[in-house]
Structure formats: structure tokens, C-alpha cells
């Protein structure tokens, strides 16, 4: 890969008819970085993320993810990323082991590797009898930890996390962030969206989208200083209140 940047977006734009959902956003994310992608409902986060994952073609502008062009090499992009969303990530009726095998297979792992990863995950998640239980009966926190592990089972260059920690208890939430830090330490870049601004404080850098544009970008400390705010919640509210879209 030519640069150390895992994401490079250059005036990335998506229009639906005469509505500009994402309006010429430019930003870079470096390898191993934890990048928070914030914005109010309807600010354009999901549309931008779909483009970065190779699921939607930009109207104009360009971008690379893991070194591949998101418009012309979207299949290669998909193979080098992981994706986890709170809404859908695992099959509840399948057991833990079956879910791991299914996703590892989709990501192209060989059956021998799958067996090894199953073993390694059982240890790191502290699952013993859980491996052969249906996922649906596990507590939500354990499901989310498993879901993150599955999304990164192929050691992708970057993992996209779409509101990963909604509703979990505070202990599990901190353990979840510890998993994220560990993965980033191992070199996986983490791209995360959240509505909860205390979570933004865990990120190395954050961007805040308003009406399709990136209005602010920096480390949480820089943004708090720039907006004379005590916390990220204040920064966010100051920016998002200016939104015109409904």
C-alpha cells in the first residue's frame, strides 16, 4: 500500500435526485487509528459509511479504503474490511460455533483456520459451554463481544462499527472498548459511529457531520478546546443545532 492511510476520502459526494446526502467530504484515517464518525440522525453518516464499505457508488469525488478504490474495486474493498452493526450481526438460532464458522467462511478462511480461530475465540471470550449454545440465549453484552470478534476474524485492515454498544451495561461497555483498543493495537483500524458522546471520548480523532458535510475534525481534546466545551456532548450540540435538514 502506498500510504499509511487506510481511508482516504476526497470530496466524496452522494446525491439522491436533487438531495445531496453527502456533500464533498474529505478526510483521512491512519492505520491503527480509532476514528469516531459522529453526526445527528439524517446528517449523512450511514450514506457515507455505505460508500466506504463499497456498497454504494459515489456520485462524485473519490476514495480508497485499505488501498482499494471504492468505486472501481468495491469487491476488493469488501474483502479487506469488517463490519458490525448493532441491528444485525449474528444469527440467533445458530450456535456460537456455527456463527463463527459461517462468517469466517464468508470471509474466505480455510476450514483448518476456522477451527483454530474458533479455539482462540473460545479462550479470549472465556466461552466454554457457550460455544454450542444458540446465540440468541446469550446476554446482549456477550453477543456484542462475539459480534465484534466475528467481524474481525479475518484480521481486516479496517473494521466499521455502526453504533456497536447501545444498551449494554457499563462494565460490558468498557470491556468492549478494551477489545477495540486491543484490536487497534494489533494494527486494525477502527471506524465507529455512535450517538453517545461519552463514547466519542474513547476515539483518537472524531469527525462531526452536519447536513452532509464534515463540520469539525480533530482529537476530542482539540475539539473541546476549539468550541470551549467541557465535554464532547457540548461540542456536538453546538454544531448539530445549526443543522437545517429535517
Amino acid at each position: 500500500m502506498a500510504t499509511a492511510d487506510v481511508i482516504a476520502a476526497n470530496r466524496l459526494t452522494k446525491r439522491f435526485g436533487d438531495f445531496t446526502a453527502v456533500d464533498a467530504i474529505t478526510f483521512n484515517v491512519a492505520r491503527g487509528e480509532i476514528f469516531g464518525f459522529l453526526g445527528a440522525n439524517g446528517a449523512g453518516k450511514s450514506t457515507a459509511m455505505r460508500m466506504l464499505c463499497g456498497l454504494s457508488t459515489p456520485t462524485s469525488g473519490s476514495g480508497t479504503v485499505a488501498g482499494y478504490d471504492i468505486a472501481t474495486q468495491s469487491e476488493l474493498v469488501k474483502r479487506h474490511i469488517g463490519y458490525m452493526s448493532q441491528k444485525f450481526s449474528l444469527y440467533g438460532q445458530l450456535t456460537v460455533r456455527q456463527n463463527i464458522a459461517l462468517f469466517a467462511g464468508i470471509y474466505g478462511l480455510k476450514s483448518k483456520e476456522i477451527k483454530e480461530r474458533c479455539q482462540a475465540l473460545a479462550e479470549s471470550l472465556d466461552f466454554t459451554k457457550e460455544m454450542d449454545m444458540p446465540v440468541a440465549i446469550l446476554p446482549l453484552g456477550q453477543q456484542q463481544k462475539l459480534s465484534f470478534s466475528v467481524a474481525t476474524i479475518h484480521n481486516p485492515d479496517i473494521v466499521f462499527l455502526d453504533e456497536p454498544t447501545g444498551g449494554v451495561d457499563p462494565i460490558t461497555r468498557r470491556q468492549f472498548w478494551e477489545m477495540i483498543y486491543k484490536k487497534a493495537e494489533e494494527g486494525t483500524t477502527v471506524f465507529v459511529t455512535t450517538h453517545y458522546m461519552d463514547e466519542a471520548e474513547y476515539c483518537g480523532r472524531v469527525s462531526i457531520m452536519v447536513d452532509g458535510r464534515i463540520q469539525a475534525l480533530g482529537t476530542p481534546s482539540e475539539l473541546k478546546q476549539e468550541y470551549h466545551a467541557r465535554n464532547m456532548d457540548e461540542v456536538f450540540r453546538r454544531l448539530a443545532r445549526k443543522a437545517q435538514r429535517q
Binding site: 445527528a40 440522525n41 453504533e163 447501545g166 450517538h195 458522546m197 456532548d233 456536538f236 443543522a243
Partner: peptide
Amino acid sequence: TTGVDAVSRS
């Protein structure tokens, strides 16, 4: 307020 952004929540 679950799933609602910070401004709407407030």
C-alpha cells in the same frame, strides 16, 4: 431516547 441523537435526546 434509545437510538436518538444527542440533540433530540436533550
